[in-house]
Computed example of a mutant assay.
Amino acid sequence: MTEATQRISDNGVSIWLDDLSRTRIESGNLQELIANDNVVGVTTNPSIFQKALSQVGPYDAQLKELGKVDVETAIRELTTTDVRNATDIFRPIAEATDYVNGRVSIEVDPRLAHETAETEKQAVELWEKVDRPNAMIKIPATLEGLPAITATLAKGISVNVTLIFSLERYEQVIDAFIEGIAQADANGHPLEHIASVASFFVSRVDTAVDALLEEIGTDEAKALEGKAAVANARLAYELFQKKFAEDPRWADLAAKGAKVQRPLWASTGTKNPAYSDTKYVDELVAPDVVNTMPEKTLMALADHGNGAPSIEGTFDDAHDVMNQLAALGIDFKAVTDKLEADGVAAFIKSWDTVLADVQAGIDRVNG
């Protein structure tokens, strides 16, 4: 293990890789990252599968085997096969950590982001199709997604809640999680191996807020550039600690074996070259969190990351940053609402490309 990845792991951060492809699985690269860089889980999303499935070659054998099926069926078979194979690689980690880690996420069709009933239905279908206890079903934290999160957890299915940008929505996600676990308990499901993470997006916040600060253009505004995302995430961690410590429902569920829904830092690749390439890793180190990293960020962490604790004791400063942004007239809710809408739209665009690429693959291998 590298010194930095071991240190950040020792300080409570679970490193998950934000990428998956058949090439990565079959080449042994995924096993290498587990062995050498403390990787203990994987997340996927429509953009990641778009990149993987656009490659000519790795999926041709399965496409040939499937024949001229409809494109939706083909995509389901290709993606669940990759996730199933990855969960098998991570199964020893899952068992060693009592299923806290060793998780591999697969997302519901992004076109269902505002369809509660259809999201619930597909979550069950994906869970049954992958058929592995260390899988996770990704559901976006739209308003329509919240009841689907509760309903999916109530069936004993592990959930990765994605596209969280605001503290307001994050609190709703925690409430949806606790209600889902309570319903799972009432439904007779063992609670010990039901896992959930709340994927709180980071770097995209700075991209949006920094643009507004540039427009304002004052020295005061420029001094706040690169601070909003980390402050927002640190306040999410403060909320995480507070909610699970104070909610009386949770104490009862925890006594029955339920595991806390951990915050997961997503979108942690640095987009602004002026910032450190490990900024959204090194500045968000604390116990009971996950950081899902693109490989480039993981390699930067391994090479020159810090990995020391960096959240505790920062809450007052984080509140101050948010207050200063508000004083400058920045409507943070408007920013995060737009980021959620843009995030859903981007995933739908990627999914449309997946449909076209896989259809082309079906046609190519089947003459």
Rank of each mutant, 00 (worst) to 15 (best):
131 D>P: 00
63 L>M: 12
129 K>I: 02
162 T>S: 13
77 E>D: 14
3 E>H: 12
362 I>W: 08
91 R>L: 14
176 A>Q: 03
71 V>S: 09
181 I>S: 02
174 I>M: 15
317 D>A: 14
18 D>Y: 09
325 L>T: 01
221 A>V: 07
314 T>E: 13
49 F>D: 01
245 A>D: 15
342 D>F: 10
292 T>W: 00
98 D>W: 07
318 A>E: 01
114 H>W: 12
351 W>P: 01
209 V>N: 00
301 L>D: 01
230 V>N: 02
221 A>S: 12
247 D>V: 09
195 A>E: 02
127 W>F: 15
258 A>Y: 04
135 A>G: 12
113 A>M: 08
344 V>R: 09
113 A>C: 08
66 L>R: 05
336 T>E: 06
111 R>Q: 10
161 V>N: 04
324 Q>P: 02
218 T>G: 07
217 G>P: 02
52 A>R: 03
349 K>G: 06
99 Y>G: 00
44 T>E: 02
46 P>D: 08
366 N>C: 08
73 T>Y: 10
313 G>S: 10
138 K>V: 06
34 I>G: 04
138 K>Y: 09
192 E>K: 14
280 Y>P: 02
146 L>F: 06
133 P>S: 08
200 F>H: 00
131 D>C: 00
313 G>H: 11
95 E>T: 10
39 V>D: 04
